[in-house]
């Protein structure tokens, strides 16, 4: 190790992006950042060419002799969102995109609680449904006075695809994608019955949130049943 030429000209500190001085490397005009510069990359390669010390080899010999530490592999990912006061999760694979809320054009002559109307997303019309009404969450009242204030202004539209049929639905809040293992899912309390039980597989506890994991197929069947 001593014999190796380890003198490094840290030009990135001297005249590069991390320099505090006023003199700057002329290459910066081309490469913008030192990490794009061949000199920087070459120095990194040179460091990799140096011999590892004995402790490094010893440590890795020990690590590789042991069983590989594996993380739980059967992770499921769900997209978590809030509608009304309920946090819900849908399989992440079926979520296509999340867009800002736009106007919903109602369809005349259709009396359905779940069907809200049509929305324009990237120039295409999508059917807009209400997940809350199917699940019986925070029922909207006609006069609007008893509405849950949070529910009155859904911030986003989620576009989900089930069997090649895209459906949009408004949500109050989105949390993003959450990964979990089957052990993290709690059974539904036996006292829960009716529509909620029919569409929920279990409860995922995440910090102080209880997320209802939705059965995608029955739910979408219910959401689109009036569309035939």
């Amino acid at each position: 190790m001593e014999t190796q030429d380890l003198t490094i000209d840290d030009c990135w500190n001297r005249i590069g992006i991390w320099s505090r001085g006023t003199e700057k490397c002329p290459s910066l005009a081309d490469v913008i950042h030192c990490r794009n510069c061949p000199v920087f990359a070459e120095t990194g390669r040179r460091l990799l060419r140096t011999p590892p010390h004995e402790g490094y080899r010893r440590e890795w010999t020990r690590i590789l002799a042991d069983e590989k530490e594996t993380k739980p592999l059967n992770l499921t990912s769900v997209f978590v969102f809030r509608t009304g006061s309920e946090w819900l999760g849908l399989p992440a694979a079926m979520i296509r995109e999340i867009v800002p809320m736009g106007p919903i054009h109602s369809l005349p002559n259709i009396s359905s609680d779940s069907l809200r109307g049509l929305v324009n997303i990237h120039g295409r019309l999508h059917i807009c449904v209400s997940i809350g009404s199917v699940l019986g969450i925070a029922k909207r009242t006609r006069n609007g006075e008893e509405r849950d204030p949070a529910y009155s202004a859904p911030a986003r539209l989620v576009v989900a695809v089930q069997e090649n049929r895209p459906v949009a639905f408004p949500v109050t809040e989105t949390r993003g994608i959450v990964h979990f293992t089957p052990e993290m899912v709690k059974e539904l309390p036996v006292t829960v019955s009716g529509t909620k039980a029919a569409y929920t597989t279990g409860i995922l506890q995440l910090g102080n949130l209880d997320i209802g994991l939705l059965k995608d197929k029955p739910l979408f069947k219910a959401l689109t049943k009036d569309l035939k």
Partner: peptide
């Protein structure tokens, strides 16, 4: 060693 008869370098990479 197999292909060029020179052993691999003793280096991190």
């Amino acid at each position: 060693r197999l292909l060029t008869a020179v052993p691999c370098e003793n280096s991190f990479s």
